[in-house]
Amino acid sequence: MGLLDYASTPLGRLVVASASIHALPGHEIRTLHTTDLNLSRGTLEVRRGLLRHTLYMEELTRQLAADWTA
């Protein structure tokens, strides 16, 4: 509770949400690219080796991702 308040940048808040809400490990968060983000569909493609996993973002994570790209 209140963990997002400690993150001072949009990227930091997106990382906190990715780890705590979607349980993405650090090595997957480090491989995220803006090209993998589709805000209109609300999805984020997570790279898992040669495979890709589609993450469907809820409203909070979607807004944090939009803040990060702005």
Rank of each mutant, 00 (worst) to 15 (best):
L11N: 09
L11D: 08
L11S: 08
L11I: 05
G12V: 02
G12N: 03
R13P: 04
R13L: 07
L14V: 05
L14S: 12
L14W: 00
L14A: 08
L14R: 01
V15S: 06
V15G: 02
V16Q: 09
V16L: 03
V16N: 04
A17L: 09
A17K: 07
A17G: 03
A17M: 06
S18M: 12
S18D: 02
S18A: 14
S18V: 07
S18P: 09
S18L: 15
S18Q: 10
A19Y: 07
A19V: 05
A19M: 06
S20D: 06
S20M: 13
I21T: 14
H22V: 00
H22Y: 00
H22D: 03
A23E: 04
A23C: 04
A23M: 07
A23P: 07
L24R: 07
L24H: 05
P25S: 11
G26D: 08
G26C: 10
G26E: 00
G26A: 04
H27V: 14
H27L: 15
H27E: 15
H27D: 15
E28T: 13
I29L: 00
I29V: 09
I29F: 10
R30L: 15
R30N: 15
T31P: 03
T31D: 04
T31L: 11
L32M: 15
L32N: 05
L32K: 02
L32V: 14
H33S: 04
T34R: 14
T34I: 10
T34E: 14
T34D: 13
T34V: 14
T34N: 14
T35P: 10
T35Y: 09
T35A: 15
L37A: 01
N38W: 08
N38V: 10
N38H: 10
N38Q: 12
L39N: 12
S40Q: 09
S40V: 10
R41T: 14
R41I: 11
G42A: 08
G42M: 08
G42F: 01
T43C: 11
L44V: 13
L44A: 13
E45C: 14
V46G: 11
V46S: 10
R47I: 09
R47Q: 11
R47L: 13
R48H: 05
R48Y: 03
R48L: 03
R48G: 06
G49L: 09
G49I: 00
L50C: 02
L50R: 09
L50S: 00
L50D: 00
L51T: 13
L51V: 02
R52K: 01
R52M: 01
H53L: 13
T54W: 11
L55W: 02
L55H: 08
Y56C: 12
Y56V: 10
Y56H: 13
M57E: 03
E58A: 08
E58H: 00
E58T: 05
E58N: 05
E59A: 11
E59V: 05
E59S: 09
E59K: 01
E59R: 04
L60G: 07
L60H: 08
L60W: 05
T61M: 04
T61L: 09
R62I: 01
R62K: 10
R62N: 11
R62H: 12
R62D: 01
Q63G: 07
Q63R: 13
L64Y: 14
L64K: 12
A65F: 12
A65I: 00
A65T: 08
A65R: 07
A66Q: 02
A66M: 05
A66S: 06
